[in-house]
Structure formats: structure tokens, C-alpha cells
Amino acid sequence: TFYNFIMGFQNDNTPFGILAEHVSEDKAFPRLEERHQVIRAYVMSNYTDHQLIETTNRAISLYMANL
């Protein structure tokens, strides 16, 4: 899942690491979701930090390219 992918960046001092920290603390994050459209919609609806949203979009693109 995307959640498992992004958790691989925990403790990294990178934008993906920052995203992983936010996702791990977000109890409502769709952890079992595999459809990138649902993940993107969730982030757009629940996150207000523009940098975090952009990082999510980049992470989703990388995740999709590696499926």
C-alpha cells in the first residue's frame, strides 16, 4: 500500500520523511487504501500545508512508477 511505501521514509530528513511522520500520526489516514485517487483526495481534503500536499503528489507518482 501507499502507507507502507511512505513509512519506509520514516526518520529520513527529507520531504518524504516529513510526510511519513505526518501520515504515521494521522489516525484517520487510509492505511489500507491502494487507489492513489482516494489517497490524493484524502490529503487534499485533510491537509492544509501546501508543501505536504506537493510532497504527497510526488510520493504517489514515485509509488505508482514502482508498482
Score class of each variant (00 low, 15 high):
2 F>D: 01
5 F>L: 01
7 M>A: 04
7 M>I: 08
7 M>Y: 03
7 M>F: 03
8 G>L: 12
9 F>E: 00
9 F>N: 01
9 F>W: 06
13 N>A: 09
13 N>F: 06
13 N>Y: 06
13 N>G: 14
14 T>N: 07
14 T>P: 02
16 F>P: 02
16 F>C: 06
16 F>Y: 08
19 L>I: 04
19 L>P: 02
20 A>T: 03
20 A>Q: 04
22 H>K: 14
25 E>I: 11
26 D>L: 06
26 D>V: 09
27 K>N: 10
29 F>C: 03
30 P>Q: 02
30 P>S: 03
32 L>A: 11
32 L>E: 13
32 L>T: 13
34 E>C: 14
34 E>K: 15
34 E>V: 15
35 R>N: 15
35 R>G: 07
35 R>H: 09
36 H>M: 14
36 H>Q: 08
36 H>T: 15
36 H>F: 12
38 V>F: 09
40 R>A: 10
40 R>C: 12
41 A>R: 09
42 Y>Q: 00
42 Y>C: 02
42 Y>I: 03
44 M>A: 10
44 M>Q: 11
45 S>C: 10
46 N>F: 08
46 N>S: 09
46 N>L: 05
47 Y>F: 07
47 Y>C: 06
47 Y>S: 02
48 T>G: 08
49 D>W: 05
51 Q>C: 11
51 Q>W: 14
52 L>C: 05
53 I>Q: 08
54 E>G: 05
54 E>T: 08
56 T>R: 02
56 T>N: 04
56 T>K: 02
57 N>V: 11
57 N>P: 02
57 N>W: 11
58 R>C: 10
58 R>E: 09
58 R>N: 09
59 A>L: 10
60 I>Q: 01
60 I>F: 06
60 I>A: 03
61 S>K: 13
61 S>E: 15
61 S>R: 13
62 L>E: 07
62 L>C: 11
63 Y>V: 02
63 Y>S: 02
63 Y>F: 12
64 M>T: 09
64 M>A: 09
64 M>D: 04
65 A>T: 09
65 A>F: 10
66 N>Y: 15
66 N>V: 13
66 N>I: 14
67 L>V: 11
